[in-house]
Amino acid sequence: MNMALFPEVVVNGETIPSAAIAAEAQNHSAPKDKPGIAWRKAAQALAIRTLLLQEARARGLQPDPEELSPGRVETEDEALIRALLDDALSIAPVTDADVQAEWAKDPERFRSAPLWDVSHILCACDPRDDAETAVAETRAKAVLVRLDGDAKGFANAARESDCGSKAQGGHLGQLGPGDTVPEFEAALRNLAEGTMTPAPVLSRHGWHIIRLNAIAPGQVLPFDTVRPKIAQALEKAAWARASRDYIAGLAKGAQITGASLEPI
């Protein structure tokens, strides 16, 4: 990326190095043919960070880094921004009435996880090897052609599987969300009970032909069960709104060039 094509970012007289923006840009998504979007997102993120740090120092706040997880401790800048937001924001407590109202909007949203009874046929390959992947895909497609939509013949076809489940006709048992790789689960979610994938599905293990034998939909959970989760979500949303409003207020009184704080 030619950094000369992008303007210098200055927040209240403090210049953000272009190298810092380039490094930050790696953390932001953008279409491959539009790297400027990642740059603008990075410039915005660092402008906001700089604005918050300036305000924290103006208030005379001192960083007190906390341990976020085993082996992961806040940086001094992260601790300073947290101290500022703790000092500046006042969030109204979430009440039982708030939680009840949110739940009542649509209790169907709060369900236990579904269970899928699944079988599969695996044509193993390393997806990083194009030639190996192509051969495995050809095998998988040939199995599908022989099945010709006959899900009942799945167990016999599974004898060709590269998975140990072939001894059980490809049966994997009951699976829930998170029990399989994302590509496998995404395919499962699009299957109707008693059907199989119309085309092989590629994962890091190879090509899968997947059959959904049966599904047990998740049950609507009682209000008392989901109350803590709803309360936590409402608190998080309120904190996010207050943070956005606070940053917008700081931005109005700031001099910022080279970056926009409007949503990208």
Rank of each mutant, 00 (worst) to 15 (best):
G13Y: 03
L115P: 05
A248H: 07
C125Q: 03
T15P: 09
H208N: 06
E102M: 06
A167I: 13
A233N: 14
W239K: 11
D224L: 12
I264M: 06
N213S: 12
R40F: 04
M196R: 05
K41Q: 12
H205K: 14
D126E: 07
P222V: 11
I256W: 01
A88F: 02
R82A: 12
A131E: 03
L202W: 01
A151M: 09
A199Q: 15
P35S: 10
A104W: 06
E102H: 10
D117K: 13
R49M: 09
Q26I: 13
G60C: 10
D117I: 06
I121C: 02
A199G: 09
A79I: 07
H120L: 07
Q232S: 15
A92F: 03
S119E: 11
G149Q: 05
R139F: 02
L89Q: 06
N156P: 06
C163Y: 07
V135R: 11
I81D: 00
G178W: 09
F154A: 11
A113M: 13
A259Y: 00
D77Y: 04
I16W: 00
L212M: 14
P198A: 14
I264N: 05
I21Y: 00
L51N: 00
N2P: 06
E183I: 07
K32P: 09
D126L: 01
P93E: 09
F110N: 07
A97N: 15
A83F: 01
T225A: 15
C125I: 01
P107F: 04
T75D: 11
A56N: 07
L5T: 11
P200Y: 03
V220C: 05
S112V: 11
A45Y: 03
H28P: 03
Q174M: 14
V201Y: 03
K166V: 07
T75V: 11
D179T: 06
D179I: 04
